[in-house]
Amino acid sequence: MSMPSPATSELDLRGAAPAPVFDPATALVAQATRGYWRTVLARILRDKVTVACALLLLAIVLLAVFAPLLALADPFKGSILRRLLPIGSEGFLLGTDELGRDMLTRLIYGGRLSLVMGITPVINALLIGAFLGVVGGFMGGKINTLIMRTIDVFYAFPSVLLAVAISGALGAGIFNAMVALTVVFIPPVARVAESVTTQVMSLDFVEAARASGASSFTIIRVHILGNVLGPVFIYATSLISVSMILASGLSFLGLGTKPPEPEWGLMLNTLRTAIYLNPGVAALPGAMIFMVSICFNMMSDGLRAAMDVTQ
């Protein structure tokens, strides 16, 4: 598995309309930006695939969040006598797992952890990586070299290997798995942020802002972040699917969730030996992982298309 390369994500600098250089008043910038986001939203709504994916994800998220309020079976209580019932059994719509627990309930509850483990590391990496990238790109020189070359070291390892190595060293558990994934995702995010920042820094309006007496903080806030956040955000959404798959992988290996907590990766592991007996049930957690990560990927694509004003 490889992460989407930052080099291939479209870093369109015209995307976020830069503020007029001669007027440092942010009100105008904000207005311009609001208009831009309205266009983006309108474009997304016209894109049926993206909307369908978003609705599906929304449904899964809502189900996961409100799982305890739905009248579902106990996700932990099983009976060995009714183990591995097929899909469509009476009282067990999606069958039962290897310990006779209701699969539908466990898939819904499993979504809670799987989604948290997929999204949290990306948000963390987005904040830390964007900060490092913008600082590196803005400061340039030795500081840039220090930050970016350190990040290159992490690039030397395949992402799966790095995640397994870090969570192996920290020990199993949800928190440690999320730390490991955050570390894995910081370098690519930082690299995207740094390359956009470096490009923006060489543009005339930054020079002009500086000449007009704007402070470094204002330049970063207004001119740089405005241009950097778009591409970085799109790139980060494309990482969510990778993160979900990696997180499931860690749980599959026993480095993520602790049993009996339902989590799709772990469920896949314990059900895989039943693939010859009850392939439908055994494939369900995998199907969930597949569906959700595809949806995130499609959404990321849709978002990128919508934010690209050249189209």
């Binding site: 932990f76 026993g254 049993p259 592991n269």
Partner: peptide, 20 residues
């Protein structure tokens, strides 16, 4: 416990059963 391993049979399912 381990998630798998030589001779460990089906460690997660078995341990979850004992846990219950």
């Amino acid at each position: 416990i381990s998630a798998s391993g030589s001779g460990q049979m089906q460690p997660i399912a078995m341990n979850e059963y004992i846990q219950q």
